[in-house]
Amino acid sequence: MYEFLTGPAAIAASGIFFIGLIVRVIFYIRGLHWQMDRVTYTVNVSYGIKGALRSVIAWIFPFGSVGWRAKPGITFMFFIFHFGLLFTPLFLQAHNFLLKERWGFSLWTISDPAADLLTILTLVAAFFLVLRRIALAEVRILTSVYDYVLLAVTVAPFLTGLLAFHQVWNYHFWLMAHIICGEIMLICIPFTKLSHIVLFFCSRVQLGMDFGIKRGGMKGKGFAW
C-alpha cells in the first residue's frame, strides 16, 4: 500500500498536477484574443512586461499593493496560509528524504519544529478563513459548499500530516491518510479553482498588460493594478 501510494500513485498524481497545470496555462494563453480582450499583447510589449511584473510583484508580497494594505487582517492570515501551504511540503525533511530516496535529489530543508509551527499556523489561518466566511455577510453570500470542500481538500494533508508526525493514535493510518489526501489535492488542483496556483499569475500578468499597454501604463507613472 505504502509502496503503491508513494510510487505509481504519487507519480500519477504529480503527473496530473504538472501536466494539468501546464495545459491550463497553454489553454489560457491560447484563449487570449487581442481584439476581444482589447489588449495588444504583441504591440508595445515592453509596457506590457512592465505592467505585468508590477502587477505580479505588488500582489505576491504581503502589503505590496493598495488592495492588501486596505485589509491588513485578512492579508496577514492569507499570507500565513499560503506561505505554510507552499513552504511546508516543499521543504519538509521527510518529503525531501523521500525525494532523495526515490528520485535521487532533494531540496533545502527546514527543521521539524519549524515545519510543525508552519503547519499549525497554516491550520490556524485556515480556521480563521473559515470563520471569516461564516461571520462576514459579504463573504458568506459568496460562499458555497464547494468553497468549503476545496478548503478541506487543501487543509487535509496538513492536518493528517501533523497527526501522523506526532503519532497521535495510529501513525500508519494517518500516514496513509496523509498521502492519499496529498495526492487528492494534487489531482484536484488543475481541475478546480485551486488552479489559481498558476492562473493567479496568468490573470495578474494579463491585467498588468491590459493596464500597462492600454489603460494608462503608457502615461504617467501608473499604479500596481
Binding site: G67, E138, V139, L142, K193, S195, H196, L199, S203
Partner: peptide, 11 residues
C-alpha cells in the same frame, strides 16, 4: 478564468 478562479474572498 476570472469567473472560475474567483476565490469568493469578498475583498
Amino acid at each position: 478564468t476570472w469567473l472560475e478562479i474567483c476565490a469568493h474572498c469578498g475583498m
